[in-house]
Design a protein around this nucleic acid. Structure first.
Length: 439
DNA sequence: GCACATGATTCACT
DNA sequence: AGTGAATCATGTGC
């Protein structure tokens, strides 16, 4: 009900802030009801406000002091506060509460998961280990792993340094603004709530900067991670010797080219995979060997013809080795296992039956024979000779046995792929598809 | 630059 | 868990 007089007091207060004489002038005219007169007053007030900048600082301070000491000041100030509370705050009130930023939460979670934010656990080794695991690599301390860890630590350090800087700047700025507002609150109505809101605005601004920092950090981690994984994925060509060893094993176990874990490890060692491929990560050798055998089986099966020559070559090598070992009085024709070959450390003699099958396919299978040249045929003859000398197989047996090419059965699979060739059964009889035994 | 070979990865299946 | 098949990605030779 008493709104009108209060508003008029407010006008008076406005004037007071600029000029003490002016306030008196307004106060003297509070009873005026003439509209033109009021406009004239406002014009005067504005005019005087405009001239404030011309006044010296000392003079302004003196007037400010006089204002603060004015007997009407507290009452007028309260009125101003009340008016402001009813207008400005009510306008802003609606847009206060914001939902928690989902993107920021995602970034925080990711940084936490990657070991960038949160408590330090060896420079994010957990994340590095996870990355390594996802790359199909054991938790061994490979060079790439430590490199990844070092770089992640670097990112972490930069992130925390920058974050600290931002927080410090935010706090400094907030303190500064709060002091300023508190100072100003003596001369103009600034409620604690308003200061609080201002602090909130400042924090939001700074948190948006923080979010950019977090985004950049996430990007950096992603790039690092992808590079790390790419490095693990990077293919490495085996050297010739390694390929030969693997091929020898493959073709000498053609009927069942599924090396046991032991055999894989042994092959890994023999192939020097531990040196050229996985010197920092020796446990991966069996995996690499598995990869190689997996690829070999598939590709061999897909295109047997293409691999025939290779098969012959390795069969010949195996046969020659068999012959030489036989000549030295060893048990060349015994169905020893690749790993039990022990002293010689060779897989060559492990499965002469497979070799035999290679020969069979060359000689008996029309599909095979159509693809071999005269030189291969002569090689076959040589092999037969070698085999007969080693007491391996008779021509009669060879003629009676019809095998699908290289041990692949009618279904397109190898016989009993679940049986590791390193445990080739010596009890397998002559009638068996597998002709490991030498009877 | 291209084709090819081949190691590695992924996914579905058993 | 091991495997086959498909696919990707890269090294190599021309």
């Amino acid at each position: 009900m008493d709104e009108q007089p209060r508003l008029m007091h407010a006008h008076a207060a406005l004037g007071m802030s600029g000029h003490p004489g002016l306030s008196q002038h307004i106060l003297d005219n509070t009873g005026a009801t003439d509209g033109d007169g009021r406009k004239q007053d406002i014009g005067d007030i504005l005019q005087q406000i405009m001239t404030i900048t011309d006044q010296s600082l000392d003079e302004a301070q003196a007037r400010k002091h006089a204002l603060n000491c004015h007997r009407m000041k507290p009452a007028l100030f309260n009125v101003l506060c009340e008016i402001k509370e009813k207008t400005v705050l009510s306008i802003r009130g609606a847009q206060e509460e914001e939902p928690p930023d989902a993107q920021l939460m995602r970034l925080d979670n990711m940084l936490l998961a990657e070991g960038v934010s949160g408590p330090e656990k060896g420079g994010g080794s957990a994340a590095a280990a996870a990355a390594a695991a996802s790359a199909g690599v054991g938790p061994d301390n490979s060079a790439e792993h430590s490199d990844y860890r070092a770089k992640l630590t670097q990112i972490r350090q930069i992130y925390h340094t920058e974050l600290e800087k931002y927080e410090q700047a935010c706090n400094e700025f907030t303190t500064h603004v709060m002091n300023l507002l508190r100072e100003q609150s003596r001369t103009r109505p600034i409620s604690p709530k308003e200061i609080e809101r201002m602090v909130g605005i400042i924090h939001r601004k700074f948190s948006s900067i923080q979010m950019q920092l977090k985004q950049s950090t996430c990007e950096a981690v992603m790039i690092l991670r992808s590079r790390f994984l790419d490095a693990r994925r990077k293919r490495r060509n085996f050297n010739k010797q390694a390929t030969e060893i693997l091929n020898e094993y493959f073709y000498s176990h053609l009927s069942n080219p599924y090396p046991s874990e032991e055999a894989k490890e042994e092959l890994g060692k023999k192939c020097s995979i531990t040196v050229s491929q996985v010197q920092h990560c020796p446990n991966i050798a069996p995996t690499i060997v598995s990869n190689w055998f997996g690829n070999k089986r598939i590709r061999y099966k897909k295109n047997i013809g293409k691999f025939q020559e290779e098969a012959n070559m390795y069969a010949a090598k195996t046969a020659v080795s068999a012959a030489s070992v036989s000549a030295h009085g060893s048990q060349a024709n015994s169905p020893s296992t690749p790993n039990s070959a022990g002293s010689a450390g060779s897989f060559n003699m492990s499965n002469s039956g497979d070799l035999f099958m290679s020969v069979q396919s060359l000689n008996g299978d029309s599909y095979q024979s159509s693809q071999v040249g005269a030189n291969v045929q002569s090689q076959v003859d040589t092999l037969r000779h070698v085999i007969s000398q080693t007491g391996g197989y008779s021509d009669g047996l060879a003629a009676n046995q019809m095998y699908s090419p290289q041990g692949i059965n009618a279904n397109g699979g190898w016989q009993d792929p679940t049986t590791p060739s390193s445990v080739t059964s010596p009890t397998e009889g002559p009638g068996s598809v597998h002709s490991d035994t030498s009877n």
